[in-house]
């Protein structure tokens, strides 16, 4: 997952790398996702998540469209 200064920079990078456009998140949205995902990582009781548990986190932070479906 890469960081870009602006939409113009992302567009140029995609063209130069002949890459399809994926999903774009604001910094605020990425913070919300990162916080939900990693807040308990240092907890001794933490365990790797099942697909269902991971999907629940994505849903919880509003990432519900097809791009974010784990399948």
């Amino acid at each position: 997952m890469l960081f870009f200064r602006s939409e113009d920079h992302l567009t140029r990078w995609l063209e130069q790398h002949d890459a399809p456009r994926g999903a774009v998140l604001s910094l605020a949205a990425t913070w919300g996702l990162a916080k939900a995902w990693y807040v308990d990582r240092r907890d001794p009781l933490w365990k790797p998540r099942s697909k269902e548990q991971a999907q629940a986190i994505l849903d919880e932070v509003g990432l519900t469209d097809e791009f974010w479906k784990l399948g």
Binding site: M1, L2, F3, F4, R5, S6, E7, L10, W13, A19, P20, R21, G22, A23, V24, L25, S26, L27, A28, T30, W31, G32, K35, L58, E66, F67, W68, K69, L70, G71
Partner: peptide
């Protein structure tokens, strides 16, 4: 409260599946 600015963006190339 998270990031103090919203300048910039994150691109995710691959879909979750």
């Amino acid at each position: 409260t998270g990031p103090s600015t919203n300048e910039g963006l994150i691109h995710i190339l691959l879909p979750a599946n």
